[in-house]
């Protein structure tokens, strides 16, 4: 259960943020999740709702919003980019395997709505 670990870490970071900014309630949290980050949306949403009931007033009723970031791969042979999920590791422009993921594996807390 990778998602449960992610939720635990996100909540820990947000608890620190809340203490620093004197926040008492977080209404929503927006995460940026890369298309190839391996995070399963349904599972993280379930884990989130479950942990919200466990973590006290700061997270009561807190909504989780997931922003999907498309994965893009760069080909160092022809210097073009292409969508990772559709073509994988082989460049559709020139057939080269010398390719690198530019973005799409990130997991970041973008913003929160709080009072």
């Amino acid at each position: 259960m990778h998602e449960l670990g992610i939720v635990t870490h996100v909540m820990k970071t947000l608890t620190d943020v809340a203490a620093e900014n004197e926040l008492t309630r977080i209404g929503s949290v927006t995460l940026e999740v890369g298309e190839v980050s391996g995070v399963i949306h349904e599972q993280i949403l379930d884990c989130w709702d479950y942990m919200c009931t466990k973590r006290g007033p700061l997270f009561t009723g807190c909504k989780l919003i997931l922003d999907t970031i498309p994965a893009v791969t760069y080909c160092s042979s022809c210097e073009k980019t292409y969508p990772t999920v559709q073509y994988g590791r082989t460049c559709p422009h020139c057939g080269s395997g010398e390719t690198w993921l530019l973005e799409g594996n990130q997991c970041t807390i973008k913003e929160i709505e709080a009072e």
Partner: peptide, 15 residues
Amino acid sequence: MKILELKETFTASND
């Protein structure tokens, strides 16, 4: 409610 931009990785607290 106010919006706070964080841009922190999921693993920031673990790091």
